[in-house]
């Protein structure tokens, strides 16, 4: 069989005795009397040609939507407790399927986020203990942690965007979703999935008490820049550009000022302005999201 899905309906007088298009149409739209419908079902159970022909009477979008949800669910595996809880709360099943297929939400990615944070935070604690003896006057030991936090957010978003890492990319691209909604859902979930561990880790590093809150705006700004950049350049270039908007200021500031200046309140204003500007760009150019996606 080279063409297993003939779209034309087998004619009533065709070879092999198949049902006519009219009968199939009447059956599919529930206009057949019950006894005739029984006969159709008895025939269809054993006749693959008429089974395939019935496909023409089902809404294409509906079949395509169910197909993408099915393949996403198959790619992800059994739903975990978190997903069952979200489903109970009322998050639509098809959205859950696509979110769960997002690589940045997979357990392995979350584990590596936690692992990197643990190493970096542990290093800060150790360095602080060895060199400063808790004096706490300079926060230079925090530079690795400062660098890594927003980059983890960025990594999550990049994984959500880059087709290379995403087995569900093809089915997501084929899904009858507005591309913007899908990408935003995935990007927001990636942001939250990384933001939470970063904020929690900020409590443990030897920094001032306001550090967890101070990490939020830079993370958000880098995230917005990534979204804006992906509407202008390709996904890979966008990842590089948005990483640079964080890494360069941190290094430059750390060279001349106390390292924490990059997240003190003057800087916070700058990060907020950057986030707002990038958000405007991303919003204005939102119909270009799909191009960044397919690149």
């Amino acid at each position: 069989m080279t063409t297993p899905f003939p779209d034309q309906v087998a004619s009533a007088d065709g070879p092999g005795g198949h049902l006519g298009g009219e009968v199939l149409a009447a059956y599919a739209t529930n206009r057949l009397d019950e006894v005739a419908a029984w006969s159709v079902e008895a025939h269809v159970t054993t006749c693959s040609a008429c089974r395939v022909a019935l496909r023409a009477f089902v809404d294409r979008d509906r079949l395509a939507r169910n197909r993408s949800v099915l393949l996403a669910a198959a790619a992800v595996g059994e739903p975990g407790p978190a997903r069952r809880l979200l489903s109970r709360v009322g998050v639509p099943e098809h959205l859950l399927g696509l979110l769960a297929a997002t690589p940045s939400l997979r357990r392995s990615w979350l584990l590596s986020v936690l692992g990197v944070l643990a190493v970096v935070a542990g290093e800060s604690v150790l360095a602080n203990h060895l060199w400063n003896r808790g004096s706490g006057s300079t926060w230079g030991v925090l530079v690795p942690f400062l660098l890594v936090g927003p980059l983890l957010v960025l990594g999550g978003v990049a994984l959500a965007f880059l087709p290379l890492f995403d087995p569900s990319h093809q089915l997501a691209a084929a899904a009858p979703f507005p591309g913007v909604n899908l990408l935003l859902a995935r990007a927001v979930s990636a942001l939250l999935a990384a933001l939470l561990p970063v904020a929690v880790a900020a409590f443990f590093v030897p920094g001032p008490g306001w550090l967890p809150a101070a990490m939020l705006l830079p993370c958000l700004a880098v995230w917005c820049v990534a979204l804006a950049a992906v509407t202008v350049v390709g996904a890979t270039a966008a990842a590089v550009v948005s990483a640079a908007t964080w890494v360069l200021p941190v290094i430059v500031v750390a060279a001349s000022h106390p390292a924490l200046a990059v997240v003190r309140w003057h800087a916070q204003v700058a990060w907020a302005a950057l986030a707002a500007a990038a958000a405007v760009v991303a919003f204005v150019r939102r119909d270009r999201f799909e191009m960044g996606w397919t690149r």
């Binding site: 009533a12 007088d13 005795g17 198949h18 049902l19 006519g20 009219e22 009968v23 009447a26 529930n30 206009r31 057949l32 009397d33 019950e34 006894v35 005739a36 419908a37 006969s39 159709v40 008895a42 025939h43």
Partner: peptide, 18 residues
């Protein structure tokens, strides 16, 4: 079954087995 029932043609009846 609905009022707008489809009448199965004799030819189709043979095929369907009704």
């Amino acid at each position: 079954s609905k009022s707008s029932e489809v009448v199965v043609s004799a030819e189709d009846q043979v095929l369907v087995g009704v």
